[in-house]
């Protein structure tokens, strides 16, 4: 499934202008960047409450499908700009991290 298709299914808001054609095959949540770097799998959607610019490098290095910010948390403009420059897709949702993981798991399986 592509990130765009996932966004449609779960009513996620696309926050970046990055083309949402990347493939998503799993979901991972966590807010410790080291942990995410080494444990998230390639093409996972990453759910995190962090909105600072450093999340973009983590998504690039771990080859994540996209970053999803839960609970309607606002994202800094600098983070969105950096994500677009690096081809990273950022999405927003009003669901909690737990709800997002459950729903994403459900639509992927």
């Amino acid at each position: 499934m592509t990130v765009a298709e996932l966004a449609t299914k779960l009513n996620l808001r696309l926050l970046t202008k990055t083309e949402a054609t990347k493939k998503v095959t799993g979901v991972y949540t966590g807010d410790l960047l080291s942990w995410v770097m080494s444990h998230a799998k390639k093409n996972d959607a990453w759910v995190t409450v962090h909105t600072h610019v450093n999340i973009v490098a983590v998504a690039v290095l771990a080859e994540l499908a996209c970053i999803i910010i839960p609970e309607g948390i606002a994202v800094e403009a600098a983070t969105l700009a950096k994500a677009e420059a690096e081809g990273v897709i950022l999405l927003g949702s009003d669901l909690t991290a737990a709800e997002l993981c459950w729903r994403i798991y459900e639509v992927l399986h």
Partner: peptide
Amino acid sequence: EMGFGAGMGLPNMKRH
């Protein structure tokens, strides 16, 4: 608070 400083960096380097 930014998600750094989990004390995982050096162990991660060793592992990878």
